[in-house]
Nucleic acid binder design. Structure first.
Lengths: 186, 186
DNA sequence: GAGCTGATGACATGGAGTGTCATCACGTAA
DNA sequence: TTACGTGATGACACTCCATGTCATCAGCTC
């Protein structure tokens, strides 16, 4: 038998999520989290760069985003890339996890510092997408604009998806949102 | 004569900018800033919510953004609103301050925590614009998409403007960027 | 069984940010 | 003139986040 309980990281995530839900993010201290997880403060910071990071652990979708973009058919034009690329992300990281994502988004929405970190994740996804567009031979300026537009569409569609009760797939909402954007700025 | 030197807030901003430029943001401590400004740590936090805020003090353009949007001609359609509204912001808060803005952006770009706070300012501007669009009778979804698109265009155009050496006005670059975006997602 | 490795504990420390009370120039009004 | 309120600052203690450093020890390998 091991000297320590297994899954230290997961226990920390669980304890943190519970405490954040119970008393809010800023009112929860790292020592409280580690006490509940049966670990020490120092160990917490070995697993997470800072206190905020513990709630974003599983959401690093941008790691795969550029790859997903490259795997799409070569015939796709820029606009189709957004629809298909975002749908692929939706399928891989959102579909089927609505309740869980809703809980996390709720905690994030209630705290300033977490909203700030969330924006950073969004920016990281944007940068990954931009790189992906550039790799597909799209110019620097359009690549940036397409990447920014992509995250706008994704985040807007996800908010709509989380607000709904029906089983409308996220990819439908993504295409709808993209159309709405196109219409708006005509 | 006053008991204290005047313009405490401005002295703090100056001292902070100097130190950030000299040794970087994270290597600069609040006590260092206040020592140079001839004040105490406690006073610093009376003027600024946190250490990061000191560098964003003058950049709260979103305070006026919604107003600017409302003042535009009623005949403007959504797309024209972006061009005209952003040009108004450009005129009011950017034109003629390129060197100063360049220095600040340089400091911000070099630090993670500052980039994060910058994203928050961007989100606040976006929210202000969204409210402005809604006030002009635009629907909730298009308003959000137009606001997000607006900040995308503004930030992209500003980056281009800062990278240039010529005297091309920012409002030109804004219209150009908006056109490029429209073309990209067609 | 000797040595290496990797995760954790234990301890100390620096810096951000806050609560609280004291201090004192200034304005105002009796 | 005097008394009092106001507002900005100083002074001090304190909590918590985050990090550096060294010790510990289970499990693996040779």
């Amino acid at each position: 038998m091991s000297r320590w309980q297994p899954n230290a990281r997961h226990r920390l995530e669980q304890a943190a999520l519970e405490l954040f839900a119970e008393k809010g993010f800023s009112a929860t201290t790292v020592p409280e989290i580690t006490a509940r997880a049966g670990l020490t403060t120092r160990t917490f910071f070995r697993h997470f760069r800072d206190k905020r990071e513990v709630i974003f652990g599983g959401e690093e979708m941008y790691e795969r985003a550029a790859e997903l973009l490259v795997e799409l058919p070569a015939s796709d034009g820029p606009a189709a890339l957004i629809g298909d690329g975002l749908s692929a992300i939706a399928e891989a990281r959102f579909e089927g996890r609505r309740a869980e994502i809703r809980q996390r988004r709720g905690i994030i929405a209630r705290d300033d510092a977490l909203r700030e970190r969330d924006l950073r994740k969004r920016a990281a996804l944007c940068e990954a997408l931009r790189t992906g567009f550039v790799r597909r031979g799209i110019g620097a300026l359009p690549a940036r604009l397409l990447a920014e537009t992509s995250v706008t569409v994704l985040y807007t569609a996800v908010d709509e998806w989380l607000a709904r009760d029906d089983d409308r797939p996220l990819s439908d909402l993504i295409r709808e949102t993209l159309d709405a954007l196109r219409t708006s700025i005509e």
